[in-house]
Design a protein around this nucleic acid. Structure first.
Length: 591
RNA sequence: GCGGCUGUAGUAUAGUGGUAUGACAUGAGCUUCCCAAGCUUAUAACCCGGGUUCGAAUCCCGGCAGCCGCACCA
């Protein structure tokens, strides 16, 4: 058996990607560093095309404008988002049973604020008090306490005073801009905003190549909606779309990420919502949109599923959360998109930390008439009487109901003390007030795409080895829309009389917006195979017939079929093929 | 981060205490040549640092990277 046959698919893809200029390990000149990859010429082109399709679908078709916010965030943002806290749990591993524990939890009861201690101090206390391993009962079996904050830390400005972090997700920048965005969208819900950009996690030991990176690209949409309106206006357009759902109750295996236990069900979006498998229409709509995007960029729908988070796996605030997962040869099911209903968690948390009101007024269709008690204390007397406490007295009085105000004496509570207020100092009346609406904090639906993982999955799913006349043909069956090189222009022979018109054709195609590579090295068969391997969907070949009648052949990557056509129709036909495929465009042109 | 294994041209490899094998790929050329044909020719490698040694790619130590297991995992 040759080494090539013993390689698994991951090795073949990474090998191909490296050889042909899709992906390179970064800093390789200096030995490389795990968790960083360069996109080579073809990889960068593929990435750009995939991002552009995402933009077409989310920015143009859904109308979610794109913004850009800094990749460095200040500490306050991540205090509010929970990243400084949640990402920095001190952990300790038992060397006997290999279970890991929150180190601060082990010494609860020994000190009052264990979470405020540095790692070395926690370790000292664990040793000093002979803390037992809760799992196996071992004493003195704990290793060093390690802090797991995965954010890259840096300082802002000289003097190293102000702490900054490289953002661990692009989302926070959009939440922080909420007030600006709300005004931009003329103060109406729902609206969405998107961002495509780098995010950073200082992974402990990233392996798995491009699957787990320390710098990665996210494409995220944050859609702010009215919490009471989780139906989607365009739901009827997609309600018949069938997706492969893997609901939480169907997940019976202990590592659902690596097994398919047969619990996947195929349902229309309508059924998924009606049977309460997906929480609501808005989420279901975005599952479908995600599916359409992924298939369009080259993910095999048969190796795609939507897995619901288990209740204990979901962030505590989330109502419902689904991951789009792809089946990979080596890593099993891998998450490539997360789609969550994050409720008002993010905005509420930023409101609390920034002390700004981030609620919005949802107007009623018709204003409501509401009866309420208007309390009018005589402050000219109360003020001098209660002096420093006058403000508290006023606040307490205004909050009283009619039954509290009716008696001979009014009693209020100030700092835990009951204080009597003379009856004649407080007047009140019942008034009818018009209420135009209600203030609420919008909920957020967040589809979050891991672009690098999507690129890997598209490469793996489109890769195939096909036997042609006893020889293996490597092909990337990438959709023409995302293929880095769209058309290869190839003179049949390396001769001037064919090279000259070939270069002219390549130039014309470029002027028509087609991304073309010109190649005259080696035999024609070799050049076809070279282009198959990088996924070039169409090749134009110039031969001696071209010199007689100005026709060329277009060769289809997938079927290896060829058609002949006049040079004059070439650009238009190729553009149609890139959009609709070889056979569709062929049928069209022959009619 | 811990433990085990590994590191030779672009790729997969052969090999030895005295600078390295053959192949594929790549470049140039020949061959009117439509699916990795053939011929000529060229380019191209011992992961990095330190130690032992007359001499280290080879032995030893450290680092880095990769793979596997544990832990972590957007």
């Amino acid at each position: 058996m040759s080494p090539h046959q013993t390689m698994d698919k991951y090795e073949k893809i990474i090998g191909l990607a490296k050889r042909r200029g899709f992906l390179w390990n970064s800093f390789e000149l200096y030995g490389g560093t795990a968790g960083f990859y360069d996109y080579g010429p073809l990889g960068a082109m593929l990435k750009r095309r995939i991002e552009d399709i995402w933009r077409k679908m989310y920015v143009i078709e859904e109308g979610f404008y794109e913004i850009e916010t800094p990749t460095i965030g200040i500490a306050a943002i991540f205090d509010a988002s929970g990243h400084t806290r949640g990402f920095s749990d001190p952990m300790v591993v038992c060397s006997k049973c290999d279970h890991s524990f929150r180190a601060d939890h082990l010494i609860e009861g020994i000190v009052e604020t264990p979470d405020a201690l540095p790692a070395s101090e926690i370790k000292r206390l664990i040793d000093e008090h002979g803390i037992k391993c809760p799992q196996c009962g071992g004493i003195g079996t704990f290793g060093d306490v390690s802090s797991f904050n995965l954010m890259f830390k840096t300082t802002i400005g000289p003097g190293a005073e102000r702490v900054g972090y490289l953002r661990p997700e692009t989302a926070q920048g959009m939440f922080v801009d909420f007030e600006h965005l709300f005004r931009f969208y003329r103060e109406k819900l729902p609206f969405g905003v998107t961002q495509i950009g780098y995010a950073y996690l200082n992974e402990i030991s990233p392996r798995q190549g491009v699957i787990r990176l320390r710098e990665f690209t996210q494409a995220e949409a944050e859609i702010f909606i009215n919490p009471t309106e989780k139906n989607h206006p365009k739901f009827s357009m997609i309600e018949d779309m069938v997706l492969r759902y893997y609901p939480a109750p169907h997940q019976r295996v202990s590592h659902p990420a690596h097994e398919d236990d047969g619990g996947i069900i195929e349902l229309t979006a309508r059924d998924a919502v009606d049977r309460a498998i997906v929480a609501h229409e808005f989420l279901a709509y975005h599952l479908v949109l995600t599916h359409l995007f992924l298939v369009r960029v080259g993910i095999d729908p048969a190796r795609l599923r939507f897995r619901q988070h288990q209740p204990d796996e979901m962030a505590h605030y989330a109502v419902d959360c689904w991951d789009a997962e792809v089946l990979t040869d080596r890593f099993g099911w891998v998450e490539i998109v997360g789609i969550a209903d994050r409720t008002d968690y993010d905005l509420s948390s930023h409101a609390e930390h920034s002390k700004k009101d981030l609620s919005v007024l949802i107007e009623y269709d018709t204003p409501k008439q509401v009866e309420r008690i208007a309390v009018k204390p005589d402050m000219s007397v109360i003020g001098p009487l209660y002096k420093g406490n006058a403000g508290k007295v006023l606040a307490a009085l205004i909050g009283l109901g009619e039954e509290d105000l009716r008696g001979d004496e009014i009693k209020i509570e100030i700092d835990g003390e009951i204080v009597p207020i003379p009856r004649d100092l407080v007047e009140y009346e019942t008034i009818i007030e018009e209420v135009r609406g209600e203030r609420v904090i919008p909920h957020v639906i967040e589809p979050s795409f891991g672009i690098d993982r999507i690129i890997y999955a598209a490469l793996e799913h489109s890769f195939s080895e096909e036997l042609v006349a006893g020889v293996t043909r490597n092909v990337l069956h990438l959709p023409a829309e995302v293929a880095p090189v769209q058309v290869a222009v190839l003179p049949l022979l390396t001769r001037d009389e064919l090279i000259t018109p070939s270069l002219a054709i390549a130039e014309t195609l470029r002027e028509n917006g087609v991304f073309v590579s010109y190649d005259d090295s080696g035999t024609i068969g070799r050049r076809y195979r070279r282009n198959d391997e990088i996924g070039t969907p169409f090749s134009v070949t110039i031969d001696y017939e071209t010199l007689d009648d100005d026709t060329v052949t277009i060769r289809d990557r997938d079927s290896m079929a060829q058609i002949r056509m006049p040079i004059g129709e070439l650009a238009e036909t190729l553009r149609a093929m890139i959009r609709h495929g070889f056979s569709a465009a062929t049928t069209q042109s022959s009619q």
